Amino acid sequence: MSGLSSQLLPVGYHSRPATTSDAPEVHRLVTACELALHGRAATGVDSVAADLGTPAAEAPSESVLLHDSAGGLAGWARVRGRRATVHVHPAHTGRGLGGLLLAWTEDRARRFGGDRLAQTVPDSDQAAVVLLRSGGYTPLVTEWLLEFAMPCEPDVPEPPAGVTVRAFEAGDERSVYQLTEDAFDEWQQRRKSYPEWARHTVELPTFDPAASPLAFAGDQLVGAVLSLDVPGDDEGYVERVAVRKDQRNRGIARVLLRESFLAFHRQGKRGCTLWTHSDTGALSLYERLGMTVRRSSTVYSKELAEG
C-alpha cells in the first residue's frame, strides 16, 4: 500500500495508508463534510469501520489518509473494486486536494486491473460535480435519500392473504442473506459473500432486529426489511428492502416498511429514511407510501485508459 507522492502535495501535507484503527478519525471527517453539505450527519462510525475492514480477498481495496502540518485529517480516499470514495474536509477545500485524491483513486484502480471507476457525489456538492465532469466522468444513476415523517404513530396495513410477518430473530441471517442477494442481483455489480454482506448489515452494532420485519408465505421467507438504529440520531434508517421476485406487487414491501416505521416510532423516533436509486425503479413505490425526497446524489463513472 502507498500514499500520495510528497512531491505532489501542497506544503505541510503528508499522507499514509489507512487502517481499521483510523475509523473514528475518518468518521469525524465524513461527519464534517455531511454537516457542511446537508446540515446533519448520516454516516455511522460502524459503517466506516466495516468499509476499512473489508478483506482484500473480497475485492481489491486500498485507502489513504491526508493530514495537515498539525496532524489533522484533511482528506481521505478509498478504492474498492470499481468504486471510489473521496472526502476533503471543508476547512481544506480549494487547495487541489480533491483532484490529487481523485487521481490517486484512478491510479489504484488501474493497478488493481480495473477498466472503470465510479463515485457517488451529492448533487449539492457542486465543486465535486465540476471536478468529476472535468475529469471525464459521466452520470450513471441517480440516488435519492427518502424520508418519512412520523409525528403520530403510523398505521400498518394487513399483510396479503397467506403472508405472515414477524421481527428478525437470531438464526434468520442466512435465509435473509439469500433473499436480499437474490433480489439485488438484478442491479448490483457482483454478488456478495455472506461474511461481506453480514459485516455491512446484521453484524453492525447499529443493526436493529426489532425494526427489521420479515414476511413469510407458509415457511418460505419472501420479504425482508433490515434497519439500523444509529445512536444519537432522531431518525431510524432502513438499510435494505427486498421482496422475492415471484411475490412482488402484492403489497409486501408496503407492510414491511410500515412495520419498521411503527417499530421506530415506538422507540421514540419521529422520522425514518432510506436510500434508493434509479436502477431499482422503486422510487414511485416509496412515494406512494408517503415518503418524500430529501436530497439526491449521482453516481459518476469513467472508463480508465491504461496508465
Score class of each variant (00 low, 15 high):
284 S>N: 15
26 V>R: 09
121 V>T: 14
259 E>I: 01
122 P>D: 03
37 L>H: 03
64 V>E: 03
16 R>D: 07
74 A>Q: 05
137 Y>E: 04
42 A>G: 11
138 T>W: 14
223 G>I: 00
265 H>Y: 15
94 G>L: 12
245 K>G: 12
107 D>A: 14
13 Y>V: 01
143 E>C: 13
196 E>N: 03
101 L>W: 05
224 A>D: 06
103 A>G: 15
212 S>F: 06
239 E>N: 07
302 K>I: 05
52 L>F: 11
263 A>M: 02
134 S>T: 11
143 E>P: 00
27 H>L: 00
199 R>H: 09
215 A>F: 07
42 A>V: 11
243 V>E: 08
66 L>E: 02
44 G>F: 00
177 Y>T: 00
85 T>W: 09
167 A>Y: 02
222 V>Q: 01
177 Y>R: 11
29 L>A: 06
17 P>S: 11
212 S>W: 05
235 E>V: 13
162 G>L: 05
158 E>C: 04
110 R>H: 14
154 P>Y: 07
73 L>S: 07
117 L>D: 04
279 D>W: 04
260 S>T: 12
189 Q>C: 06
212 S>R: 05
164 T>L: 10
9 L>R: 06
259 E>V: 09
175 S>H: 12
221 L>K: 00
269 K>I: 12
190 R>M: 01
204 L>N: 02
226 L>P: 07
281 G>A: 12
29 L>E: 00
9 L>Y: 03
81 G>Y: 05
61 S>T: 14
287 E>H: 09
290 G>M: 10
118 A>D: 10
45 V>K: 02
262 L>W: 06
275 W>M: 13
124 S>P: 04
88 V>W: 06
88 V>M: 05
79 V>Q: 07
65 L>C: 00
14 H>K: 03
30 V>W: 05
235 E>W: 15
89 H>M: 06
306 E>G: 11
166 R>W: 03
230 V>H: 04
223 G>W: 08
20 T>H: 13
269 K>C: 11
101 L>P: 04
296 S>E: 11
61 S>K: 10
192 K>P: 02
184 F>D: 07
217 A>F: 13
133 R>N: 12
307 G>F: 13
266 R>K: 15
72 G>W: 10
59 A>N: 07
76 W>N: 01
252 I>F: 01
276 T>R: 09
273 T>I: 14
